[in-house]
């Protein structure tokens, strides 16, 4: 999405020829990612409600975390201490929020559907 569409909140700005418009992001769904598909097919997919096709080049060979690695995890005191040292206080967090003009507000939890 990054290159072809701009995004504002929950909305994607989309262009098709000379026309521009806004599509709600939750109305946009991906198709299966295919290697090497071009942008035109991606745009076509968006218009049919199947966005994202062709956007991602699959990276094979990148090793991720796997179960064996997780089960072989060992305690690392130095890293834990680093994590502890980086903790933020509520006051520190509130100051940072204020710098970003973030204002806390009430909002009810969502019921399960």
């Amino acid at each position: 999405m990054r290159n072809r569409f701009s995004k504002q909140g929950g909305w994607f700005k989309v262009k098709a020829g000379k026309a521009t418009g806004w599509v709600h992001m939750l109305s946009v769904r991906k198709g299966d990612a295919k290697k090497g598909a071009d942008n035109a097919s991606g745009l076509l997919a968006l218009s049919s409600g199947r966005a994202g096709t062709g956007k991602v080049v699959a990276t094979t060979g990148v090793r991720g975390l796997n179960e064996e690695e997780l089960k072989a995890a060992t305690f690392n005191e130095a890293e834990l201490q680093r994590a502890e040292a980086n903790a933020s206080s509520k006051a520190d967090a509130a100051t940072f929020a204020k710098q970003g003009k973030l204002v806390a507000r009430p909002f009810d939890y969502l019921p399960a559907k």
């Binding site: 999405m1 992001m25 946009v28 991906k30 299966d32 990612a33 290697k35 994202g52 956007k55 991602v56 699959a58 990276t59 094979t60 060979g61 990148v62 090793r63 991720g64 975390l65 796997n66 179960e67 997780l70």
Partner: peptide
């Protein structure tokens, strides 16, 4: 949505 764009055979999303 970003994660959903990753191919299913991408190791980075396997777990």
């Amino acid at each position: 949505q970003q994660i959903g764009h990753a191919a299913k055979d991408d190791n980075r999303v396997a777990l």
